[in-house]
Simulated scan of single mutants.
Amino acid sequence: MNKEAHTRIHKADSRGAADHGWLKARHTFSFAGYYDEDREQFGALRVLNDDIIGAGYGFGMHPHNNMEIITIPLEGALRHKDSMGHTSVIKAGDVQVMSAGKGLTHSEYNASETDSLNLLQIWLFPKSRNIEPRYGETTFDVTKMEGEWLNVVAPLGDKSDALQINQDAWFSLGKFQKGKTVSYSKKRAGNGLYVFVIEGEVTVGEEVLSRRDAIGITETDSIELTAADHAYVLIMDVPMDV
């Protein structure tokens, strides 16, 4: 990370919070009843919700349009159904993407009647509006995240095994043992890097980030991250020119 890099720190305890009983949510960016004019988005990254959903509960059929929606279960299993005809159950190790495009409806429920579900739901503004809706899901080999970045989301037309979305954005996950240092180089000029610590503790530059802390970085081509403890990290490489 060069000296001219610009950073934004979003500590876990600074996030918006909502407790609906069956749903306990933390919002990194303004969402629903939480609004902060300084937390509206990070470039194309519009929503980063950390949801805990009670056993048997969930969201009934509801609409979306012109948004890229990425769901990453962390604990438990999510039952999905949508107007495109997809029904599935996704769990930790899986990633799901939807390009809402010109419009779709879907429902999301905790698939368990006994255990809670924890997931990340992430929304990005799309590159092109009013496209035909698209859906994808993949179970990734978590061993490929050990000690290195595994690309799980990439733009339409990408030739890798990553899920494809309607935006020039890349998501990568990595699991790093204490003391491990890794670098990441952004994949598109003009993109910013948003690092979210799912578990553990890391340092990025001079910043120490703990569980559910995040840092947004612009004006740099690459970063170095060191695990101060065993860490599970999501990095989002997203356009800033939206």
Score class of each variant (00 low, 15 high):
N2R: 14
N2T: 09
N2M: 13
T7M: 14
T7P: 04
I9P: 03
K11Q: 13
A12C: 13
G16C: 06
A17T: 15
L23N: 04
K24C: 05
A25V: 12
F29P: 00
G33V: 09
Q41E: 13
F42P: 00
F42M: 03
G43I: 01
L45R: 07
R46A: 00
R46I: 00
D51A: 05
I53F: 10
Y57K: 15
M61W: 13
M61F: 09
H62L: 10
N65D: 15
M67D: 06
T71C: 07
E75H: 14
G76I: 00
G76M: 05
R79Y: 12
K81R: 11
D82G: 05
M84D: 07
S88V: 04
K91W: 09
K91P: 00
A92N: 12
G93S: 10
V95G: 07
K102P: 01
L104N: 00
L104I: 08
Y109G: 01
A111T: 02
S112Q: 09
E113Q: 15
L117D: 07
L120Q: 12
S128N: 15
I131L: 11
R134M: 09
R134S: 07
Y135I: 01
T139C: 10
T143E: 13
K144V: 00
M145K: 09
G147W: 14
E148T: 08
E148R: 14
E148S: 10
L150Q: 12
V152W: 08
G157I: 03
K159N: 13
K159Y: 06
S160A: 11
Q164W: 07
D168P: 02
D168T: 05
A169S: 12
F171T: 01
L173C: 04
L173A: 05
G174V: 03
K175D: 09
Q177H: 14
G179N: 06
K180S: 05
T181M: 07
N191D: 10
L193V: 04
Y194S: 02
Y194T: 01
I198T: 05
T203Y: 08
E207V: 06
L209W: 03
R212P: 02
A214D: 06
A214W: 10
I215V: 15
G216H: 11
D221H: 14
I223F: 01
I223C: 00
T226W: 08
T226I: 06
I235C: 06
M236L: 12
D241N: 14
V242M: 11
